[in-house]
Design a protein around this nucleic acid. Sequence first.
DNA 1: TTAATGATGGGCT
DNA 2: GCCCATCATTAAA
Length: 183
Amino acid sequence: MDLYRINSQTPTLGVAKDLLGKILWFDSPDGIVSGRITETEGYLSDDPAAHSYRGETKRTAPMFRSAGLVYVYLIYGMYYCLNITTRPEGEGEAVLIRSIEPLEGVEIMLKNRPKADISSLCNGPGKLCRAFGITVELSGLNIINGAIRIYDDGYKPATITSSKRIGITQDSAKDHLYRFTID
DNA sequence: TTAATGATGGGCT
DNA sequence: GCCCATCATTAAA
């Protein structure tokens, strides 16, 4: 199985679609967990909904560094969200990984989310980070050498659906079809 | 079945 | 002080 590398020549929305069907892999303290990516969203540099929009801060620094880094942030005080950066130094774009179909380490995921059943184990950005054990401590790692990686096993999605992003309310951003899903 | 609400804390104005 | 790229739980219908 091949390591998947982000090509910084590829536009962010192209990467968002490209990541569908790839395998997210994490060498967690409890063991290997992995799953197939089924939902992503793109966040662009001229996009008021992007964390990078108001400039670089300590939190958002990975978005501005280089393509192929992990950007993790805390949301609503209790959940983490996982992104992969897509652009060269200074640009500030990323893809949010929103949903995954569990593959390896299901017993670890169930230990992290004891009340979930398989179908709802990783079907949301907060849920998948909780199930995998991904926290903000991992923000800034690269996906070539780090504990979080992406693999390509040759799976090709049949159909990619575009839709509006979840939870985006700014008038100038809410209607963009930057959310991509496969079934 | 869908709709409303509470949890919980960092980041920014 | 308000907002937030969320989710589980409860309430209503």
